[in-house]
């Protein structure tokens, strides 16, 4: 019984939240990795683009709700998502035309792109603050729980509750669909293959008649899908605030680098590595220990390795370890 209780606790407090968070990070990291492999720079505006997509979704959701359109048990935001994706992708393609295209034509050093992306990051940040302010926004509606804590306790007869929020299940389902679609797109379609070819060997891609402008545009389009989806899922699961989204940048980068920059598979693996590490390291293990350890070994402290205030240190530490020992990441990335 104790063991089962411990298992339920682990599921409730580690597996479910970390898997959800991991899926969100993976989507974000996929975007980072795609931009890196096609446009060859680390996009610092990524976190704020996620925020932008989310803000647009929040706006459209509010509009739908005011018209009385909802999705019943599912969050209305899901209905707004496709429209927000279109808006975000258009903004990104526009940004590319106005900002990055110029440096691409000049074949500028990657660091110039990074700097430009920093400028874009702050402008986007200004825009989202203008649109939605700086406060936390909760925009989920519909059924809150798939499995309710009390219902689970009554059903199982265990002391520990297990709750599964709709948004958590939704995150995983949506992420799986998006990732499956992305891999199908990259590996099975002509356009997807041409993107991989461009990433592999730009000159030869040009010789083969692949249109670089089209590749870049499709990339931003896909990045728009990925960032908006990641941002909205994160916001539904937790809440939206410009500062939190800015801080998502580091774990997202860490995930992409851990997996190997440029490797889509790596981005997904990296997302889960970072998410699980963060949750495991900041979790208070005392109650779990109470179930599995004999009374004589009961710990005194909280058994929390790191306070949640230092969440960001976890992704940073992972990043440093990877940079020190394996700069190409788990799945060999493009370069160091």
């Amino acid at each position: 019984m104790d063991f089962l209780n411990a298992l339920v606790m682990l599921t409730n407090f580690i597996i479910i939240p970390a898997t959800t968070y991991g899926a969100q990070l993976a989507l974000g990291a996929l975007g980072v990795t795609l931009i890196y492999s096609i446009l060859r720079f680390s996009n610092f505006a990524h976190g704020d683009t996620m925020a932008l997509g989310t803000v647009v979704t929040i706006g459209i959701t509010a509009l739908f709700q005011s018209w009385g359109i909802t999705l019943g048990p599912l969050p209305t935001a899901l209905l707004a998502l496709p429209f927000a994706i279109i808006v975000t992708s258009l903004v990104m393609i526009g940004t590319d035309q106005v900002v990055y295209k110029f440096y691409r034509a000049k074949k500028a050093a990657p660091i110039v792109f990074v700097m430009a992306s920093l400028g874009v990051m702050f402008m986007t940040n200004g825009v989202i603050r203008f649109l939605a302010g700086v406060k936390d926004i909760n925009f989920t509606d519909g059924e809150r729980f798939l499995i309710q804590a009390r219902a689970f306790k009554e059903w199982s007869g265990l002391d520990q509750p297990l709750a599964l929020r709709t948004t958590q299940a939704l995150t995983v389902v949506v992420a799986v669909i998006v990732v499956a679609w992305l891999f199908w797109f990259l590996n099975r379609t002509r356009t997807g293959k041409s993107m991989r070819a461009y990433s592999d060997n730009e000159d030869l891609a040009l010789l083969s008649g692949i249109n670089p402008n089209r590749v870049v545009m499709v990339t931003w389009l896909i990045v728009g899908i990925l960032t908006t989806t990641a941002g909205v899922l994160y916001g539904l699961d937790k809440s939206y605030s410009p500062f939190t989204y800015f801080q998502l940048l580091l774990p997202t980068f860490a995930a992409a680098i851990v997996g190997g920059l440029g490797s889509p598979l790596g981005a997904i693996a990296g997302g889960f590595v970072v998410a699980y590490s963060e949750v495991v390291v900041t979790y208070v293990w005392r109650a779990v220990a109470g179930y599995v350890l004999p009374d004589s070994l009961q710990p005194e402290g909280l058994l929390q390795l790191l306070s949640t205030d230092y969440k960001i240190a976890v992704s940073f530490t992972i990043l440093v370890i990877v940079l020190l020992f394996k700069p190409t990441g788990i799945f060999k990335g493009q370069s160091v």
Partner: peptide
């Protein structure tokens, strides 16, 4: 040098050759 797409399969390389 650099005359193939290294991470793509042989068949995909050929497909890319026929891109136009």
């Amino acid at each position: 040098v650099r005359n193939i797409f290294p991470s793509m399969t042989v068949e995909e390389n050929l497909e890319m050759g026929a891109f136009i």
